[in-house]
């Protein structure tokens, strides 16, 4: 009996958290947004999503099994998330082989070459997306319109995103009033009835997923709230300065990938800071960069670049913003 006793250090019990639970929780949170994208963009959205998930999982399996020669951990769900997020960041009619290339870059380069889950400094899905954007700029910016060609995959009728309309229009000297008539109403943007990448469309569906993740304690509110609030305030200030040149802040919240980025991409735990204050700083930085790129940058949308740039700052943020320590300041209440 006595020699059968296990000796190990405390604690002797473990909570119910596991990587698997967290990751599959994120997948569940993505379901509303996925369903909305299938609804608006039909079969194309479905094919792109499946393709991305499959190629991410297969890439991870092959790299782990045959190159790193370690036990594959695809069942932890993290490759599935990368696949889903990559799909949500591309147009619904993107040729399947581009999706595969994006997935290989995301998993093979951005994740596994750094040592796998937990070691990658940059968000893998965003790296995949930016790679595709640079390599295939035309395909990556032809956005199928909702409810058109829901049963065909390619050659969909495409149009620019709302952000694109505004940016291009303002660049050409069109007046904002005029441009506003060419973008969907805010109510439509909220439910997602507009052109855009799969996950950019419905702010509402994304918010729902975000709420779920906060309630299940998969993420905390710090990054999404500080990110979205920063964009809102930045855009609000510009709007107050000159409402004829700058569009109102609500537009910035609903258009493009802000919701997707703030709730699902910037909150990737591997590539975001380790303290709550650090997270707020990170969200703030993402917000500022997003607005700078949207208003003055070369691309209409800045969320991906903003998050990737802030990913690079994470080690620095972690050094500068440690958690508040107990007994640091002597407080007598």
């Amino acid at each position: 009996m006595a020699n059968l006793l296990t000796i190990s250090g405390s604690p002797h019990i473990h909570g119910d958290q596991s990587i698997r639970k967290i990751m599959w929780g994120v997948v569940i949170a993505l379901i509303p947004a996925l369903l909305v994208s299938f609804w608006y963009f039909g079969i194309g959205a479905f094919i792109v999503t499946m393709m991305a998930v499959l190629s991410c999982v297969v890439t991870e399996f092959i790299v782990q099994k045959f190159i790193l020669k370690e036990e594959p951990t695809i069942s932890d769900g993290s490759a599935v998330i990368t696949g889903l997020l990559l799909a949500m960041n591309v147009p619904g009619n993107l040729p399947w082989w581009m999706v595969v290339i994006g997935s290989i870059i995301s998993i093979g380069v951005a994740k596994m070459s750094f040592g796998g889950l937990g070691k990658n400094p940059f968000n893998p899905a965003l790296i995949g997306r930016v790679f595709l954007l640079i390599s295939f700029p035309v395909a990556m910016t032809s956005w199928p319109l909702p409810f058109q060609n829901r049963w065909v995959f390619t050659d969909a009728i495409t149009g620019p995103t709302a952000l694109g309309v505004i940016k291009e229009g303002l660049g050409k000297g069109d007046s904002l009033d005029n441009l506003m008539t060419r973008i969907p109403s805010y109510a439509e943007m909220l439910i997602g009835n507009m052109g855009g990448s799969l996950g950019e469309v419905s702010a509402l569906a994304i918010l729902l997923g975000g709420l779920y993740m906060i309630i299940r304690r998969i993420i905390t509110w710090h990054i999404p709230v500080s990110y979205i609030l920063t964009v809102f305030i930045f855009a609000g200030i510009l709007y107050l300065i000159d409402p004829s040149k700058f569009i109102d802040p609500v537009f910035h919240l609903l258009a493009g990938g802000l919701m997707l980025g703030a709730i699902f991409m910037a909150t990737d735990m591997v590539t975001s800071p380790m303290s709550k204050t650090g997270m707020v700083v990170f969200g703030f930085g993402c917000g500022i960069l997003t607005m700078l790129i949207r208003v003055w940058g070369a691309y209409p949308e800045g969320v991906s670049f903003a998050i990737l740039i802030m990913n690079a700052f994470v080690p620095l943020i972690n050094k500068g913003f440690k958690p508040a320590k107990f007994g640091e300041e002597v407080k007598h209440g």
Partner: peptide
């Protein structure tokens, strides 16, 4: 498995470490 940098350990540490 690998640390996934989820920061949960820092959230629960009662000493703020």
């Amino acid at each position: 498995s690998n640390c996934i940098r989820c920061a949960r350990c820092t959230f629960v540490c009662p000493m703020g470490l």
